[in-house]
């Protein structure tokens, strides 16, 4: 079955990203296809490679990046939500005159249309948030 996942909260403050990660991993291991993982609201904060949690804590950003690499996941960070919260890729940095970028491997920045498309194209869309 073709599934999509929407994540509305950043890592660490709320359990949404953890739950979504465990759900997505289980779905992939069961042989489902993940059409897209879409990060919205503070969920865009899952996409910064500058995240540096303590050694004994899970690194959710890395976990998502590794899952994306292993399963060729399409992980999309909403551009409007990302701009508000300072999540920047090289293109966005250039366009907005920023002196650097922080997007983590496996994530890409795109528009809200990607979320609507995920709703249209997927058999199921599951939202994780606060």
């Amino acid at each position: 079955m073709k599934l999509s996942v929407q994540i509305n909260e950043g890592p660490y403050t709320h359990a949404a990203s953890d739950t979504a990660y465990q759900f997505t991993k289980a779905a992939l291991e069961k042989g489902h296809e993940i059409f897209r993982v879409f990060f919205y609201h503070d969920g865009v904060n899952n996409g910064t490679r500058f995240t540096t949690p303590p050694q004994d804590d899970r690194n959710l950003v890395n976990l998502w990046s590794e899952l994306a690499e292993k399963h060729n996941l399409d992980m999309v960070v909403c551009v409007a939500a990302a701009q508000r919260r300072g999540i920047v890729d090289p293109d966005e940095a250039k366009r907005n005159g920023k002196d650097g970028n922080n997007i983590a491997p496996g994530f890409r920045i795109s528009g809200l249309g990607q979320l609507i498309e995920a709703g249209i194209q997927s058999d199921r869309l599951v939202v994780f948030g606060d």
Binding site: M1, L3, Q22, F23, K25, A26, A27, E29, K30, H32, D123, R124, V126
Partner: peptide
């Protein structure tokens, strides 16, 4: 468990 969560969704 999470597998059961996935099954419920499908």
């Amino acid at each position: 468990d999470y597998n059961g969560f996935v099954d419920l969704v499908s």
